[in-house]
């Protein structure tokens, strides 16, 4: 079971934001999307979630997403947006509870508290959302997303987490915590697609990486294949050096031409 995007083409007016990009994300894996600012990562997420009109096709667990109703999609995948805005000041627990709307865990009132506990914010349940710091708000939104697909596998079908920069405003400890949550979800049979900026964190946690640049897919594959000096330097337009220090030989990226 997988999340398959084929030849995704997106235009904003005359500008092409994605040119025939394809991507297959498998359940049980964490698939990362990386690339410079404006390379089309959020746009690709918009196509995968059905938010943006696009040419090409996206299938989720074998079904064309454009033929499904919002609640059918919501039962199968949850989406963490790049920004966590909220127009009215709800208590934190109510924000998390909004994840239950699609009904996957609707009859399980304990799930929102457990989801908050998972992101380490159980004691924030009655706090006001607007009084949270940026990172706390992002983690509360992650709890909402987790509550929506609380079971990584249900009815024999994997559930999916689509995360747009899930660690962008988190400190290093919470970055690791959130990446662990995402990997656990995948290891339990669910699927994760995450837009990432931190290449070292990506190398550590991703099973597959898609590199976007200027609306094209430059590379797609496991970290050791994709994270190379050539690909990264071409994608980001700056000199980068990848090494794989022992004992684990996980790729490690350093700026090459950094002048001290």
């Amino acid at each position: 079971m997988s999340f398959i995007a084929t030849d995704i083409h997106v235009r904003y007016g005359p500008r092409e934001a994605l040119r025939r990009v394809s991507l297959t994300a498998r359940a049980g894996e964490l698939t990362a999307i990386v690339g410079p600012n404006g390379s089309g990562k959020s746009t690709l997420m918009g196509a995968l979630t059905g938010t943006l009109p696009f040419d090409g096709s996206v299938t989720l667990n074998g079904q064309d997403i454009t033929r499904q109703r919002p609640w059918q999609l919501a039962a199968q995948r949850a989406v963490l947006p790049q920004d966590s805005r909220l127009a009215f000041d709800f208590p934190v627990i109510e924000v998390v509870r909004m994840g239950l709307q699609a009904g996957t865990a609707g009859d399980r009132p304990e799930v929102p508290m457990q989801a908050l506990a998972r992101v380490g914010l159980a004691h924030y349940a009655t706090r006001s959302f607007h009084a949270l710091s940026g990172g706390e708000a992002q983690r509360v939104m992650l709890a909402r997303v987790l509550a929506q697909v609380w079971e990584p596998v249900a009815d024999g079908q994997p559930r999916w987490l689509l995360l747009d920069e899930p660690v962008s405003s988190l400190d290093i400890g919470h970055q690791l915590q959130v990446m662990e949550i995402a990997r656990d979800f995948a290891r339990s049979g669910g699927g994760v697609i995450a837009v990432m900026h931190d290449l070292n964190l990506t190398a550590l946690y991703a099973d597959r990486i898609a590199v976007l640049a200027g609306g094209d897919r430059l590379a797609f594959g496991p970290p050791t294949e994709v994270l190379t000096d050539g690909t990264l330097s071409r994608a980001y337009g700056c000199a980068l050096r990848v090494s794989a220090p022992p004992p684990q030989h996980v790729p490690y990226i350093l700026p090459h031409a950094a002048t001290p």
Binding site: T51, P70, A75, A78, F88, V95, G99, Q101, Q148
Partner: peptide, 21 residues
């Protein structure tokens, strides 16, 4: 009520949690 609550997170997120926006 439920729909307007979801809309507080923006239209895209409201759709993602299953609301027919």
């Amino acid at each position: 009520g439920r729909g307007l609550n979801g809309l507080a997170m923006g239209e895209a997120t409201a759709a993602h949690i299953g609301i027919n926006v």
